[in-house]
Write a protein that binds this DNA or RNA. Structure first.
Lengths: 163, 163
DNA sequence: TTAATATAGTTAGCTTGCTAAGTAAATAGA
DNA sequence: TCTATTTACTTAGCAAGCTAACTATATTAA
């Protein structure tokens, strides 16, 4: 009833391609839903994470939470600031870092956004049990660990070649 | 032993972000490994799919298999052709379509590529059972279906507004 | 047979990830 | 205290996904 496809075999050929495709599709679903708010994928994701980590978060903390690099975040924050949804304030304790705050308008957009996301979540996970979703989460975390380990080892290999 | 994270809760906030991150990381692992071959992610993925669907496949069939749109594929094929790994021949039965074939050099690259991918697959799936991987596959397929259904419904909604 | 529509592929330009290299502020060492 | 290094962020430009709009060929209908 639950199993269906030989994942191990399927991915033998396409590796992580399936994940990329599903990711693009899910992203598209949300983007269609939030289009009236003038939000693209990177913008709505960023708003959700700012709220999750609390206002006043630094850009570095935010980038880490989103799993993206600083330059990618810089661009998105610039766009959000231009749309008057957030403001960036220099931290007076450490004037290198900037902290993110919502504007009034930003908070309104966030609350509409969260309602829409809740609806979509139900649609996307339809037909999957909490148990199955937990196993998927475990698998994703495991693969992320494995990938990072592998990347680190490649980097060490490079450095050895330098000497 | 297997479960660990509350996926359902985690994704409540970040939705498909986890998938995107894991996808980017896995892609990076392969890209590092195949860099000596001068292949980027889109190029090696395309080579693997051409081989999977057999030489002589049309661009449309290939795009569908890769889960990407034609313009994305056009660019990648152009690069692969410039690197002398494939050739595109106009189908004489239907002169609109083009069929893809490997060059001698392309076949050599493919075989090295496949060895490397097999190694990486083992690394990335390390610590996951076939059963867990099957559940992940099922979940991905299910989410893909759900997402497509949702996108179709949005499109219908748009058309109704037009009348 | 000719005009209208559909299909395969291309081109142009957007989004959002990335790395490399730069600036300005903070910290460590001489 | 003054220089050197590290850190937070920015800028510039590449990679690879996308849509919209184009060309050329094939099909369908008048």
């Amino acid at each position: 009833m639950t199993k269906q496809l030989p994942f191990y075999e399927t991915l033998d050929l396409t590796l992580c391609g399936n994940m990329g495709r599903v990711h693009r599709l899910c992203r598209e679903v949300v983007t269609i839903a939030v289009e009236p708010l003038g939000l693209t994928q990177s913008r709505w994701t960023t708003l959700v994470h700012v709220n999750m980590l609390q206002e006043g978060v630094t850009q570095l903390e935010l980038a880490h939470s989103l799993g993206i690099e600083m330059p990618s975040l810089t661009r998105t924050l610039k766009q959000l600031e231009e749309s008057l949804l957030i403001v960036r304030k220099v931290d007076q304790q450490d004037r290198r870092s900037k902290r993110i705050y919502f504007t009034e308008q930003g908070r309104n957009v966030l609350s509409t956004l969260q309602e829409k996301i809740a609806d979509i979540k139900d649609q996307l996970y339809h037909g999957l049990s909490h148990e199955q979703l937990d196993i998927m989460a475990y698998g994703l975390v495991k693969m992320e660990e494995n990938a990072k380990k592998s990347i680190i080892q490649s980097t060490i290999g490079e450095n050895l070649n330098d000497t």
